[in-house]
Amino acid sequence: MRIIVPIKQVPETNAVRMDEETGTMIREGVEAIINPLDLYAIEIAIRMRDEHGGEVVVISMGPPKAVKALREAIAMGCDSAVLISDKAFAGADTWATSYVLAGAIKRIGGYDLIICGERATDGDTGQVGPGIASFLELPVASYIGKVDSVAEKSCRVHRLVETGYEVLEVDLPAVLTVVKEIADPRLPTLRGKQKARKMDIPTWAGGDLKVEPDKLGLNGSPTRVVKIHKPTVARNCQKVAAADEQAVEQAVDQLVAFLQGKDLM
């Protein structure tokens, strides 16, 4: 089977610092990584290929430096990669991003499954997976926590919802978005890294895809960011120190009294 995994390169969000003046992100010195939630999509795709044969094609839309994320995915065990990069894609919202990724997936063709991470840790929308499915006229099963079985024309999966798991049978080809519990991502191997270094990764621009220029990037995006600001959070915290054993006892007594005062005990 042929599985396509769209991934995104994101800043390591735990390290994100904000410019207090402008409310924008300080990108200098922040490492760019594969979106952590995409690692689960890569892992399950590799496992399915190992079990059923075929290949895993990893793709990413982003600036030229996003090729590093693709090489990491190859080092983990993906078979081939395509970078989708063009200045015309800049400023794309989830509509225009899904449009370009769907265009690239059409060009690859011959796929059985498209597997996406649940969402990217920078944008945090989770909209691109279902968006790709919509453009490709494919069914989507989101929040997949387990792949039970794969047959030639369908697969059976567990979908995590608020009250438990739905068991779904999904006709192929289809789009799956997966959650963390699906599989523990592996680390790249030394051999994988060597393969990744040597691999020729093509770059496709807008002209290489059957896409309409007016639907690309900011121009093709229905939404506009009009304001960025820092969240303000403020409560009056009654703070007590508990540096030694006696202070711990006192602090706990104060906390219990505080909770009793609020009728929370």
């Binding site: 409560r235 915290c237 703070k239 120190a241 508990a242 602090a251 706990v252 906390l255 505080f258």
Partner: peptide, 19 residues
């Protein structure tokens, strides 16, 4: 602590069992 109403500054391994 910026969003807390009550805070204890200390080691949870010492505080939690007592609490």
């Amino acid at each position: 602590f910026n969003v807390a109403d009550f805070g204890i500054v200390g080691d949870l391994f010492e505080i939690v069992p007592v609490l």
